[in-house]
């Protein structure tokens, strides 16, 4: 129960930050990616702002075996750069630049995003359903 409570609080804070920062506005995201157009640096400030408290949190996490609610802390980050990571990120970026939405803002804006927002979320979920076999295939091919 307490886990769900803190998960909801964290999700709510995440949604608040996305809304205040303007990251649910697709023109700001596309504006940031549009290096050859009217470049909008807002996203860099959002990223920088988000990384600061998170970096402090990782320092605290490194000193603990378990989280406050008792679960194991995430393991050390992997160092393997596979084809799945590169190809997947590239595909994600292509879609991100096309519409200006990534998964967090797509969910945060769902109540006011209209039909377009609902269609985007549905298509994104369809893509997520299709991904595991494709990822397995990429991993198999790159291991061979």
């Amino acid at each position: 129960m307490r886990r769900n409570l803190f998960a909801a609080a964290s999700g709510a804070l995440f949604g608040l930050g996305l809304t205040i920062s303007g990251m649910t506005d697709t023109t700001k995201v596309i504006g940031w990616l549009d290096v050859f157009g009217a470049w909008d640096p807002t996203l860099a400030f959002v990223m920088g702002g988000a990384i600061l408290p998170m970096a402090v949190a990782w320092r605290f996490a490194a000193r603990r075996e378990r989280s406050v609610l008792g679960s194991a802390m995430p393991s050390k980050p992997g160092t393997h750069i596979g084809h799945d990571l590169i190809l997947g990120s590239f595909l994600f970026g292509a879609g991100w630049g096309l519409a200006g939405l990534c998964p967090g803002p797509a969910m945060a804006s769902i109540t006011y995003g209209g039909i377009g927002g609902a269609v985007f979320l549905a298509a994104m979920i369809a893509g997520m359903v299709m991904a595991p076999p494709i990822r397995a295939r990429i991993d198999k091919l790159s291991a061979a």
């Binding site: 799945d84 990571l85 590169i86 190809l87 997947g88 990120s89 590239f90 595909l91 994600f92 970026g93 292509a94 879609g95 991100w96 096309l98 519409a99 939405l101 990534c102 998964p103 797509a106 269609v119 985007f120 979320l121 549905a122 298509a123 994104m124 979920i125 369809a126 893509g127 997520m128 359903v129 299709m130 991904a131 595991p132 494709i134 990822r135 990429i138």
Partner: peptide, 12 residues
Amino acid sequence: AGLLVGLGTRIA
């Protein structure tokens, strides 16, 4: 765009 974002993020 939605398909690419869903696919790409889960592959990556």
